[in-house]
Design a protein around this nucleic acid. Structure first.
Lengths: 161, 161
DNA sequence: GTGTAAGTTAAACCTCGCTTGAGGTCAAGA
DNA sequence: TCTTGACCTCAAGCGAGGTTTAACTTACAC
């Protein structure tokens, strides 16, 4: 049937919106793979575009590339993933997205209630005790997940006028 | 008036959940400030706790420390911020939070619709466009985030080179 | 008055998610 | 054939958001 047209790194870059350097980086992490021409240039299968789309999508939601790699590792080796393969994988992110939405909504509502009281105090303000640390949005904020629970408990219990 | 009890960096760290190193870092960025003892040790006003709470909260939502600094700069210099000061500041984050929630919801819903077909093309299903017509529509799924200028620039650069 | 926990600085180091640069090769059109 | 642009590798750099380390000094309880 149709010729299996391989894509150059530049083509994948243009179509996926990820720079060539980014694609090479993904490859070093094992997130994508490529064939090589006799001249050592990368050639990508078309399914790579879907794979990259998935990586970008998950990345935007705040997942680390390592987590994404773990998820991608569940796709079958040695054959082109079917729609069902992708469906299962997509579905697996759903609860995570829901959790993230819920967390940020809670944050907004809490902030809303703080507008009512003007407090932002550590004693009363729910903001100081986010129920869902995993709901952090950026790489930066995630560093704080290492905070010990005792820290949070102590902070919550202290007066902070 | 009650004695104005100043707090050591350790106390602020314990109560806020931010490590001393983090507090010093915030200070270098101008997000918080401190008095010094004759022995050069930092002493914080109690309002610093609120300030730090605000910084952490905003940071969790994905704002950069620079953006947070800009917001904090609107607080009055030279006097303890009142509840009203804080209220105004909190209110100013509301649209931002709403926007973030909307973005993630959209991501989730798009992903959801893809579960139906398993494509993950998000904009135009590749499975339904065997000729990869989606490729002609420009860089991939990035539109979901609202196409930041840097993304657009990078994509454009790719096309140009 | 002394031991030690807590504080100080500057600078180096860390993770993440890439980009940039140097130095060189490959592929395709005029 | 020549030229040009796209590609290669490897190493270093960036920016955000901090932490760690080294080499001290201070504060305070006993």
């Amino acid at each position: 049937m149709a010729i299996e047209r391989y894509l150059t790194i530049g083509e994948v870059a243009r179509r996926s919106g990820v720079a060539p350097s980014g694609l090479r980086y993904y490859e070093t992490l094992g997130l994508i793979s490529s064939e090589r021409t006799t001249g050592n240039q990368r050639r990508y299968e078309r399914t790579t575009l879907r794979r990259v789309a998935f990586i970008r999508t998950a990345s935007r939601v705040g997942l680390t590339l390592e987590e994404i790699g773990d998820a991608l590792a569940t796709l079958p080796e040695g054959r082109t993933p079917t729609a069902d393969d992708w469906t299962g994988l997509s579905r697996s992110w759903r609860p995570l997205l829901d959790a993230r939405i819920a967390a940020i909504e809670r944050l907004r509502d809490d902030l809303d209630s703080c507008i009512g009281c003007g407090c932002l105090s550590l004693e009363r303000c729910v903001l100081q005790n986010p129920g869902d640390r995993a709901a952090t949005l950026g790489p930066g904020a995630r560093y704080l997940e290492g905070d010990s629970p005792s820290d949070a408990a102590r902070a919550a219990g202290q007066d902070a006028t």
